[in-house]
Design a protein around this nucleic acid. Structure first.
Length: 277
DNA sequence: CAAGTTACCTGACGGC
DNA sequence: TGCCGTCAGGTAACTT
């Protein structure tokens, strides 16, 4: 599921059902996630406290409570937040169950358990950007995340551009799929050393990144309405993949056969004609 | 010290 | 059928 668009879709889907609600009960499967689940702190401080605000930062979903405590979820490779009636039997890999006073249950399901839940105490909650997110790069839709910003960060590096885009310390929210798709849209070979790219190329790439992320959110958004009923909910964007997973098939632009290579240990797809180093 | 590798975990898939 | 290796949308801690 979870790159920026998927996390954004989950977030938008749960907001109407969760905002202003209070958690009345928290249960935990006991299975370890990527980091220790702060079950005691959650039970001690969050029960019956209104949830004030829910938003996305990078690939994280942040819940802030009326008592200034904050809870942050990361979905890892396979995590989801789902809503269901509280009496719904636990599904395989449901790990956290938050019963709400709105007679709904928010669940975190995560097959591979690379996800995490971070509890942030009152003292640090006020300034997440300088604590939890101090090493997280700017949001792709923000002013700070411009072509010139990327150009500057790339100056003294020979990293492949795809690895650079997937580095959350440089720019937030881009994973393997959207790195591949954005580079195809921009006509840039994923192995291109970042120092080779001109300011103009960074500006064009940044526009493609934003357009593709917006498009993907809109596609996922079409399933938001029935999110509460959704079992195995999916966005539509995979129907629009132009390069990810398309090795061996013709490029939609030039009909050349799409190739696959590993870059930084991750599957990378490119058109050998349209994407130049 | 930038950049490559490993570790965390389950499940799906292909080859034999 | 089943056993094995490989791979999967992320990230941080390692090593080189």
């Amino acid at each position: 599921m979870p790159e920026l668009p998927e996390v954004e879709v989950i977030c938008r889907g749960i907001i109407p059902h969760v905002r202003h609600a209070r958690i009345t009960d928290i249960r935990y499967s006991g299975k370890p996630l990527r980091t220790v689940v702060p079950i005691d702190a959650m039970r001690d401080t969050l029960l019956n406290v209104p949830i004030e605000k829910i938003w996305r930062r990078a690939k994280y979903i942040v819940f802030s409570f009326a008592n200034d405590m904050t809870l942050i979820f990361h979905m890892g490779m396979s995590g989801k937040l789902t809503l269901c009636p509280p009496e719904t039997p636990p599904a395989k890999h449901d790990h956290l169950f938050f019963t709400l006073d709105s007679h709904i249950q928010l669940r975190m399901n995560d097959t591979r358990r690379f996800g995490q839940v971070v509890f942030v105490d009152r003292e640090k909650s006020g300034d997440l950007e300088t604590t939890v997110f101090k090493n997280t790069g700017p949001e792709p839709f923000s002013e700070a995340c411009s072509g010139s910003y990327l150009h500057r960060r790339a100056r003294s590096s020979n990293q492949p551009v795809k690895t650079f885009l997937m580095n959350a310390h440089i720019i937030a929210g881009i994973g393997n799929i959207y790195a591949n798709e954005s580079l195809f849209a921009a006509g840039i070979h994923p192995a291109t050393p970042v120092s080779n790219l001109s300011l103009y190329q960074w500006e064009e790439l940044m526009k493609k990144i934003q357009a593709i992320l917006h498009w993907a959110i809109d596609c996922g958004g079409s399933t938001i309405n029935d999110y509460i009923n959704a079992s195995g909910e999916q966005g539509y964007f995979q129907a629009n993949f132009k390069i990810y997973g398309k090795d061996g098939t013709p490029c939609t632009i030039c009909r050349a056969i799409i190739e696959k290579m590993k870059i930084g240990g991750r599957a990378s797809y490119f058109c050998p004609v349209c994407q130049k180093i």
